[in-house]
């Protein structure tokens, strides 16, 4: 009896502690998702939304319009772009993180901060700076002309898929650098010495020790880059060309804006959500599979 009572009380206390978090979750996560989910099965009317269950929004997304184009193709386009950005951010941040971790002895923290600082610079400003660099009469073209490598300005640097990838790579590299650097930082120096000691040269040590141990960080970083670039509508609209400025997030934004078709926008949103959740599940599993560093402390004695 008494114990049951006490248990009841502690449960009450626990509830009190958890309540704010639960309320926050319900209010700002579960309810909005539920809302989005229900909207996706309704139909748009000019001034209101018709609340009758149907799958027309999903059908519309996956079938061709009267003019013969299927909206889901934009999603495939976006996935391709996200792949490019993921590869580029990784190719940029891994050597950078490796350099800071293993080659820099002084000012390590300062250099790391220098790479992270762009996170505090406004997004729009970073996108604009690329316009100045990549434009027809921009810094890069002027430089190439001066070097004599080209004799007319190269136009595909800006307002093309290339500039969108460059812009996003710049914007998302810090997000990738952080987990990759953390993973490298967590590799104990003595593992590298052990590999050296056992006859591993720099390359083999990298391939057999450093890289496998950095994989969880690489996967995390890659996932960040992929998901973030998939959901980005600003970089395409600022840096994209005539046919590369409309990615899936722009289409969603359009539905909640210019096109004013919330149910259709919600349906696309749900499709993206399912895709991202699937992706996170897969990368999460991979990450767990590769993360072996925890609990190998020598003091794990029974």
């Amino acid at each position: 009896m008494r114990q049951g009572n006490r248990q009841g009380r502690s449960r009450f206390v626990l509830l009190g502690i958890l309540a704010p978090a639960v309320i926050w979750l319900v209010l700002f996560l579960i309810l909005p998702y539920f809302n989005l989910f229900s909207f996706s099965f309704w139909q748009n009317d000019v001034f209101t939304v018709r609340h009758e269950f149907n799958l027309l929004n999903y059908a519309k997304f996956f079938t061709e319009s009267q003019t013969g184009a299927a909206p889901y193709l934009v999603l495939l386009d976006t996935l391709k772009l996200a792949c490019w950005v993921t590869v580029c951010t990784l190719l940029l941040s891994f050597p950078l993180a490796y350099f800071i971790r293993f080659k820099v002895t002084r000012y390590k923290q300062a250099l790391y901060m220098l790479v992270i600082i762009p996170l505090w610079v406004s997004y729009i400003m970073r996108a604009y700076s690329w316009k100045i660099i990549l434009g027809t009469n921009g810094i890069l073209n002027s430089f190439l002309l001066w070097l004599g490598i080209v004799d007319t300005p190269v136009s595909f640097f800006l307002y093309s898929d290339v500039s969108v990838i460059i812009g996003m790579t710049h914007i998302y590299t810090p997000f990738v650098l952080m987990p990759v650097y953390t993973a490298l930082e967590q590799i104990p120096q003595n593992l590298i010495e052990a590999s050296n000691d056992l006859g591993g040269n720099r390359l083999r040590t990298f391939l057999h020790v450093v890289f496998p141990l950095a994989l969880p960080g690489i996967i995390t970083g890659g996932t960040y880059a992929f998901v973030l670039s998939m959901g980005d509508f600003l970089a395409p609209s600022l840096l994209g060309g005539p046919t590369s400025s409309t990615k899936i997030a722009n289409i969603v934004q359009q539905q909640f804006g210019t096109s004013n078709n919330w149910p259709y926008g919600a349906a696309i949103g749900i499709v993206i959500l399912v895709l991202v959740l699937g992706l996170l599940e897969v990368t999460g599993r991979l990450e767990r599979h590769f993360s072996k560093l925890e609990s190998t402390s020598p003091r794990t004695l029974r």
């Binding site: 319009s65 184009a69 299927a70 934009v74 046919t243 400025s245 409309t246 096109s259």
Partner: peptide
């Protein structure tokens, strides 16, 4: 809007 989107996505 749909037509315009199709033009912009080149689809």
């Amino acid at each position: 809007n749909e037509i315009w989107t199709e033009v912009k996505t080149g689809k």
